[in-house]
Design a protein around this nucleic acid. Structure first.
Lengths: 309, 309
DNA sequence: CCGCAATGGTCCATATTGTGGACCATGGAT
DNA sequence: ATCCATGGTCCACAATATGGACCATTGCGG
């Protein structure tokens, strides 16, 4: 898997195998989203069809992100790993509710009206973290001249929720809004994991064990090692082991209760992460992480004050 | 704002038939969203749980819109009309996927992380209509000094997808982003309906018959009459029959194939809709509707050109 | 202080519901 | 004409969601 990622495209595109290093190219390897349900060890509770539908919805969004005409049924089935009939049935339901729309010509699926509405409604809502972090993201992107990300913890996974392009010439396509990976995979994600207690780390690793089968080179031992190193350094470093050549550095963002709820990270090419610059970046990120925490404290206080009145 | 609205649906209020005129008050009557599944006459196909889940998701978004701490389980069950256990089970699934989050203190539900992500992804996507209409909405709001809306057709229903506040002192809370009503109810919605062929009108009315039970005063005869009048006038007028005192005027927006896919509308109080101003507004809206259609034509052309290459 | 009526949440037998392998139609490439 | 991949449909089966009854808390009012 992910080898033939190429398949990505799907249709005509005669399976042009990217000349290696195809950053942008292989980024469609967003199967990352597919696996998710298995939170923890227990899977007894029952609303599977809903979970499946929601995962697929997300998948449509991610796959159709860079492709304006949407994702084909074949691709969705392939990437989601479910039988075609099921995928199709679910898509019909999603279309019926307007969360997905189907291009009448190409028969491809993309996010629909309701998805946008939902976003509008969600955005309207106080998105503390997003709100509090935008300024920081911009500052980091500007002064580092690289692409910066906000990764939010969600259970045992990390979701990229913001992405800020830096003014520099280097563009990194390893991570985009909506991508979800198990905690520990990627700089921001690893920063969050490393900031958890030892017990929590074990729980997370147990939870994501099966999912991590799809990420070669991220077995338990390696992750333990990475966590250890990150804690010593005071920052998490992704030295290109997700996508060769794509490095990144991240630090955790803590909420007012000191729980690591997110992470800031900066991505670029290996050359831009020599020793001196690492410290520089780490200091910058730590400062901004603290500033976000302060902003969160404020907004929380004002909220509870309002609530009391 | 909408202060006591709170109570609204909520608890005690023993089915209080609002003392009329309850502008803001009754707007929480967003059950409008609840009914939807029954598209058309046929309901054989089967992915009901998914539909239910998606409807509930939307409901969470709408109910929690103005309430930063979210909607209570009780409210959601009441407004959705399904048994508590079901609603709860669905909510658990939505929470598990991150589309909804539950306030740990109040136990209330609001849109979660994934909802925002989805919006981000959907927004990223080319939202032709939204894109093409923003300028028009702003222009209309500015020059009319009233609140203007974009209503998009979705099956036999109209969904409010944009809302632009005008600079004037009058604020209208009859319609908000995310609200869905059967075609014919509300100015924009009626404008779309009136722009359909007679056959289509019949189909729509048949489809929404049961839903319209919840809208007193919108039986088939009345709607036929309204459609007739709208066609004669060249614009749809809502003379406060949804919410007393809240008037609005709308015209349909046609896509390049001349199908009415949306509508622009302006809402205000009755006093601001005398004969002269109606014509003025209608002309303004028609002009902007044409301009949107032109923009759509352009974007569609450039897209197909790109696709061919 | 003790109900009383809300609330959020859980259980579990039932049959309704989604499942997915097999199948068909189409269309582009060889 | 052949082949493969595509989007889409069918249908017997059983796993699945369903929802009424039930429980635990909380907050109000007499």
């Amino acid at each position: 898997m992910m080898a033939d990622v190429s398949a990505d495209a799907d249709a005509p595109r005669p399976a042009a195998p990217p000349p290696e290093l195809g950053k942008a190219a292989r980024r469609s390897a967003s199967w990352t989203i597919a696996h998710t349900a298995d939170d923890g060890a227990d899977r007894p509770s029952g609303s599977q069809s809903i979970q499946r539908a929601l995962v697929l919805l997300n998948l449509v969004g991610v796959l159709a992100r860079d492709r304006p005409d949407g994702a084909s049924l074949a691709e969705l089935t392939r990437v989601s790993g479910r039988p075609k009939a099921s995928v199709h049935r679910i898509l019909v339901a999603l279309v019926a509710e307007g969360y997905v729309e189907q291009d009448p010509d190409t028969a491809c699926y993309r996010l629909g009206l309701q998805a946008g509405v939902l976003g509008e409604l969600a955005g309207h809502r106080a998105d503390d973290l997003g709100e509090a972090s935008t300024d920081s993201l911009i500052r980091i992107a500007d002064s580092s001249t690289d692409t910066t990300f906000l990764t939010v913890r969600h259970g045992s996974y990390g979701v990229c929720t913001r992405r800020q392009e830096g003014p520099g010439p280097i563009r990194n396509y390893a991570l985009a809004v909506g991508d979800r990976h198990p905690l520990g995979i990627g700089a921001g994600s690893l920063a969050i994991l490393s900031a958890l207690s030892d017990d929590d780390v074990e729980d997370v690793l147990a939870s994501t064990a099966t999912t991590r089968d799809h990420y070669p080179g991220f077995d338990d031992d390696t992750l333990h090692d990475l966590v250890h190193r990150s804690r010593q350094n005071g920052y998490a470093l992704n030295d290109g082991r997700v996508i060769a050549g794509s490095w990144a550095l991240g630090v955790a963002v803590r909420d007012p209760a000191d729980r690591p709820v997110a992470a800031l990270s900066v991505a670029s090419i290996a050359e831009r992460f020599d020793g001196a610059r690492r410290d520089e970046l780490a200091a910058l990120l730590h400062a901004e992480a603290r500033s976000i925490r302060a902003a969160l404290t404020d907004s929380q206080k004002s909220r509870s004050a309002r609530g009391r009145s």
